[in-house]
Amino acid sequence: MNVYVDNNEKREEFMNLWSQIAKERKYQVTDLKENSEAFILKAKDGTSIGTIEFVPCEEKLLDMNDLVDISNDTRILNDLKHSYQVRKMGVKKEFATKNVLLDLLKLAAMHAKNNQVHYYVSYLEKNHYNKLTEKFKFRIEKVGEDVKMGKKTFVPAFIDVEDAINNTQGYPIYIKSIAYLVQGTKKVKAFFA
């Protein structure tokens, strides 16, 4: 279950949860952006377990040093309206499972569908990037050099949403099912009935 952060109480819950996740994973803690769309991922029992923030790409954000550098990426610059940064994506360690990762991917897929997103950019932890590209066969383009923050290495990543949804060959079935969800095909019923 996902909860959209649309008031101060949920915003505070999001930031408390993100602070816990960031502390566990040694991430930087920054506040939510005013124009962002943020979600709290909940377990079936209602426990808050994860966060994700979608921030629209805007020219005024291009010089921020904690974001993927999109200043030379014409795909995004020519389509800012349909491009988002994915930030504050994380899950508390005790809930970090494949199913929870797939729930985050489903949430991102539905965000893409509902907002007509063409491109996502994000920093992904190197091991998460490797898992998504090697194990799940998800197509993510590396757009720059790895960045070292503390003891962790992050990969600047670019996802062409249309390509990821339409070219599913090689994906394991649980990733294909997310693409079917976004496409709205009849195959969805087999996975999400």
Rank of each mutant, 00 (worst) to 15 (best):
N2W: 00
N8M: 05
K10R: 14
R11E: 15
E12F: 03
E13N: 14
E13A: 14
M15C: 03
L17D: 00
S19A: 07
S19F: 04
I21S: 04
R25L: 08
K26D: 13
Q28A: 07
D31K: 08
E37P: 00
A38K: 05
K42H: 05
G46Q: 06
T47K: 12
S48D: 09
G50C: 00
T51G: 10
E53N: 07
E53G: 04
L67H: 08
I76Q: 05
K81N: 12
V86R: 12
V86T: 15
V86W: 11
R87M: 10
G90I: 08
K92E: 08
K92A: 06
E94A: 05
A96M: 10
D103F: 00
D103Q: 10
L105T: 00
A108M: 14
A109C: 07
M110I: 12
H111G: 01
H111N: 09
A112Y: 11
A112G: 11
H118V: 02
V121R: 03
K126G: 04
N127Y: 13
Y129Q: 09
N130C: 01
N130M: 03
K131H: 10
K131I: 10
L132M: 15
K135I: 09
F136A: 00
K142L: 12
G144C: 12
E145C: 10
D146I: 09
K148Y: 03
G150W: 15
K151I: 13
K152I: 05
D160H: 14
D160T: 11
N166Q: 15
N167F: 13
N167D: 13
T168W: 02
Q169N: 12
Q169R: 07
G170C: 11
Y171K: 09
Y171R: 07
Y171D: 05
K176Y: 02
K186V: 08
K186A: 10
K189E: 13
F191I: 01
F191W: 13
A193W: 06
